[in-house]
């Protein structure tokens, strides 16, 4: 069972704003999912290495070379707010 306080803390870490009402539903839904996932605890994984990449591929190397991205303006156009060609955000400091 996950508490509302825990969910609030995790939502903060995930940078997702939540309301009091949403917290309740999230805590309920998350508890149900986490209970179900408990099933994995019955597997004996002692000495078993984790698999992160399934085909076992290793270190794909390529030349470290700077490339031009042609459509820079296309990226700039996507800034939520802009001044000249700069992305305008709230003051950081």
């Amino acid at each position: 069972m996950i508490t509302k306080e825990e969910v609030k803390h995790i939502a903060g870490l995930a940078r997702i704003g939540v309301t009091e009402k949403e917290l309740e539903k999230l805590a309920k839904d998350m508890s149900a999912v986490l209970d179900w996932i408990e099933e994995l605890k019955e597997v004996d994984v002692a000495g078993i290495p984790p698999t992160a990449h399934i085909t076992g591929m290793e270190n794909r190397l390529r030349e470290d070379r700077q490339c031009e991205f042609e459509n820079k303006q296309g990226i700039i156009e996507m800034f939520p707010e802009k001044k000249d060609n700069y992305d305008k955000v709230k003051s950081v400091l």
């Binding site: 940078r15 704003g17 309301t19 709230k90 950081v92």
Partner: peptide, 22 residues
């Protein structure tokens, strides 16, 4: 109605994240 607490000095930018994702 957003109820997460953050230090006031960080709020400015963090609120952009919190609200946009919310």
């Amino acid at each position: 109605d957003s109820i997460l607490d953050f230090e006031p000095e960080n709020r400015n930018l963090i609120e952009t994240y919190l609200d946009s994702r919310r």
